[in-house]
């Protein structure tokens, strides 16, 4: 049996691929791209939420938010570490991020303008991420799958904290309710864009499905997210900003309006409201940390 046949047989039998196993070059490259994008998203995602740590409205809200963002740093680390098993170092991945060769989820290129955004981000952005991540637990690459299992376990509180924030506000004073609805209005479409282009327009999806990297398609996952989220919005009296959103009895799912793909591609290609800010922030922290890393390396060499 050829290496490729052995590889495909493993995928077919749901046997995970491990770092030292033979794998097609395209499989390795696709994983490096997807996993590093996932890792960068966790790390860049710390910034829009970090924007509100100092201003959280209660000590409880503050420690919860801080713990959540800290988890995201941890998840970035798990994902970089899984991606490193593909023969590329974290330094190389970080360099690709900073030189804009690598992408991260475009949702983090939108600003967090009010405290209600902490609710919307947790509820919708983490909610969408969880749908994706639960599915990815079944991915064919062992280290990626294990990272996903760990991440899903830890993230279970993230979406709930977001929903708690936005529901308190939606049911609070008129000003709070206005902030909650405004946050939903701004976050809804970018969150459903998180699942990526429609299956028909997604160039690399075919290979990813064939190799078991992705187990479910962009459109399937997006639909699942919408279906479970609509009721949560209704329960707290918020309106999803989509006039075409309607229950379809026949499909047993919600129909929804046309996504603005021009906006999606503009943000992906660097023209979102915060793209520059996010990357500049990352580079600044990295540059300011250089002398610290150098010192720690020098000390370790003298003393190990």
């Amino acid at each position: 049996m050829s290496d490729l046949d052995k590889f495909l047989k493993k995928i077919e039998n749901n046997v995970k691929i491990e770092p030292k196993d033979w794998m097609p070059d395209g499989y390795r490259k696709h994983l490096q791209g997807q996993m590093s994008q996932h890792a960068h998203s966790e790390v860049i995602g710390m910034q829009p939420e970090g924007n509100w740590i100092s201003r959280a409205p209660s000590l409880r809200a503050k420690v919860i938010l801080l713990a959540k963002i800290q988890d995201e740093a941890g998840h970035g680390q798990y994902l970089y570490s899984a991606a490193e098993t593909l023969g590329k170092s974290r330094d190389e991945y970080i360099n690709e991020l900073q030189t804009r060769k690598a992408k991260y989820s475009s949702i983090f290129n939108y600003p967090t303008l009010t405290w209600a955004d902490m609710g919307a981000v947790g509820w919708l952005v983490d909610g969408a991420a969880i749908v994706n991540q639960v599915s990815l637990q079944k991915t064919s690459y062992g280290p990626y799958s294990r990272a996903m299992v760990r991440i899903c376990k830890e993230e279970s509180f993230h979406q709930r904290q977001g929903y708690e924030i936005i529901s308190h506000m939606a049911l609070g004073t008129p000003e709070q309710k206005e902030m909650a609805q405004d946050a939903l209005n701004r976050t809804w479409w970018p969150s459903i864009m998180m699942f990526g282009p429609h299956d028909a327009d997604s160039a690399r999806s075919g290979d990813a499905m064939k190799w078991g990297i992705k187990v479910e398609s962009n459109d399937e996952l997006r639909q699942r997210f919408i279906d479970k989220t609509v009721q949560q919005a209704e329960l707290i009296g918020l309106t999803i900003p989509d006039p075409d959103l309607k229950w379809n009895e026949e499909r047993g799912s919600y129909d929804f309006g046309e996504i603005n793909w021009d906006e999606f591609w503009a943000v992906v290609n660097g023209d979102g409201p915060c793209n520059d800010q996010r990357i500049d922030h990352h580079i600044k922290a990295h540059e300011e940390g250089r002398w610290v890393r150098e010192a720690a390396n020098a000390y370790a060499q003298k003393n190990n």
Partner: peptide, 14 residues
Amino acid sequence: AEWCSNGPMLEEDI
């Protein structure tokens, strides 16, 4: 808490 996302390494942020 101001160090969040500003540390010299991801591990140090945590």
